[in-house]
Nucleic acid binder design. Structure first.
Lengths: 219, 219, 219, 219
DNA sequence: CATGAATGAGTATTCATTCAT
DNA sequence: AATGAATGAATACTCATTCAT
């Protein structure tokens, strides 16, 4: 038994190493240009071993994508009872930005989008379980804020999209077009401005005028 | 002379046929999977002729992208003096939607994004001359609306991004993840709702309450 | 008639231009890497015109080679009655060196040698009409020198080869291995030493001892 | 271990097979006309395997050339103490002739010379490590003969070139222009005549007159 | 007669995947 | 179970030569 468990742990270690190397390669070079031999080399296994763990390049890519969205399905964007809407939404935006930048979700998105013609099912899955899931979580937060009287009652499903759209404009969109696009210095203030704009429509109580003013002439 | 013009017209015909075939192939299969031989076959020319017209696959792709954005640089999104902000912005959204869907700009964007790792310069160019240009045009419209007293004075550079972000959420984003994503039936009403939300913040005169209500329970 | 002669002269001009461009290309790049299109471009004619003048690449190459050896078949290496053997042979060596270096015969030789596998007949022709012809001329000079009593009676056919072999060692051999091998500063003294060595065997009167000594510790 | 050694031996076998096929192809067709696919086919491996062993056509060619000159760098031309100069030099000439003809060095030289425009470094290497090395070995033999009193003291560096030049005239030069030039029947007597001519200048004791006479009327 | 656009056969090189040990 | 050598199909690109005008 000891031998069996040892083998199993070795196998799991290799499995993880392959996934990690694959992720790095796919994100860096894109699907087509990433090479199985190189992934095997970086994972320090033979190509045959790689194929023992993942039956094809396509399945390896799917596994990389799955892994990125696994554990992420768990609720990430949550309300913080007692805090004002502005604070809650700001925190959520920061969590989202961290996810996209630091966890390289933007790069992953790019590669998934790139493979839509050849792997439409995968893209659909990412969209359903990644993108839409995030919308649902945001909507739940907004519903909670409405319930707490922080926001006016309204169609939160739509307004979640509005907020998401505005935030993505700064957090996701430029990343898709620029390799290694970094979180800029004034990202925070931009996100705050987004949220203030959003609250301009949906806040139960009007924001102080000066808040809006102060964000009026940014870049 | 007759000979020269004849040749020129034949050459231009082939040039166009190649570009068209290339565009179709790149959009359908993505850059890597598109094959020069297949493009030549579809354009009904030999590979050698193809290479006489475009020196490399990369340059052919660049030409396809350029063509898509040439003539498009010309101002497309414009103010319509005398019309209310709501009408103007709605029209603009429709023009934008037509561009993205009917002119297959969404598919083009997807392929360009896919090639960011291998052709960052091209993506940058598209971003600068395509995406940002559209922003500038929108901002000009907003400035005009402000000047006409339709919108409150505000930072139109930022608010253009907000509006663009909200609209993209319906027009661009799902398209990136879905091959042949079609303009849905209720696209128009969704766009109207976006604009109303935008006007909820920046309109000089508050919208009638019922307008906002009527868009409150769409999907 | 005036038109006919005009046309003829134009045609001859183009013929010459093609030959010149071809020569430059073949010598610079070798046969395989030289491109017909490039040759046509450099000769300022169309490829079709080029093919009107020379039916194939191979025949163009043959023409280039022929031209190089035409007019050269005419006696170049000659005796100068009244001059001592040493002077005559030295002059001959200089003529030969000029031919090989300045007329780029070395480069031509290299290309011809390169094409022995694909154009053995051409190489044979060059060997017969170029190399051997030079031997015959040299032998004639040696015979003349024997007749004048400058050299001992001996088998000049063989001794011509000896002298040629020694001279080539400095004039031809390094050129074959080095692109743009230039005539070195001390080429003259080396050639003189060769001739003195030759005369050491075949001179009717022994050379002064000091002559041989002075060349004893060169490079 | 068994596996590793097995693989190694298989790999080395293929490596050798590829080298042999490559050598045959390059010598037969020249560098440009030789085709990697054909080499692979003759070596009974796939093109991919060929590329696993040699990263490019250029490197494969370099390897073929290297192999021809490896082991050859070891001293081949040596003095034989106690033997007269004539015998020693004659033996050396025979060794050299065998090398050039039977080991196909002449064909190799031709291909290397052909590639001077495109691979000057390789030609230079062959010249330095092949041609010049042979000169150095010959000079060492001559020095030894001088030391033994067989030859007059003189500049052996120069006289080595003279001897080499004379011998090449029979052994190398015609080979460059003729595919499959065979060692002729009377090669031996021609080489002997060369050496006698050489000894006519540098021998410590004059050769018997009749020796020179007997070689006077060859072709 | 001159043109230059068009061709098709050919070449080096790559890579996902398999298999003998 | 793990290896890494081997594969074969695919692909971008080139070039001598021809042909309609």
């Amino acid at each position: 038994m000891g031998l069996a468990t040892y083998r199993k742990s070795v196998s799991e270690t290799k499995h993880a190493a392959i996934l990690e190397a694959a992720r790095a390669n796919f994100l860096r070079d894109g699907y087509s240009r990433a090479a199985m031999a190189e992934i095997a080399r970086e994972a320090d296994v033979s190509t045959a071993t790689l194929y023992k763990h993942f039956a094809s390049k396509e399945m390896l890519f799917a596994a990389v994508v799955q892994e990125a969205y696994t554990g992420t399905e768990a609720t990430i964007l949550t309300d913080t009872p007692g805090k004002p809407a502005r604070t809650v939404l700001h925190n959520i935006a920061l969590v989202y930005a961290r996810l996209q930048f630091d966890e390289q979700m933007n790069d992953l998105l790019r590669v998934v989008i790139a493979e839509v013609p050849s792997a439409p099912h995968l893209a659909r899955e990412v969209y359903e379980n990644g993108v839409l899931e995030r919308y649902r979580q945001l909507q739940a937060v907004l519903d909670s804020l409405v319930a707490r009287g922080e926001l006016k009652p309204h169609d939160t499903q739509v307004s979640a999209l509005y907020l998401a759209g505005m935030v993505k404009e700064f957090v996701v969109w430029p990343s898709l077009f620029t390799l290694d696009f970094k979180r800029s210095e004034d990202m925070d203030s931009k996100l705050e401005a987004c949220i203030d704009a959003y609250l301009g429509i949906y806040a139960a109580r009007p924001l102080q005028r000066d808040r809006i003013q102060e964000n009026t002439r940014g870049t």
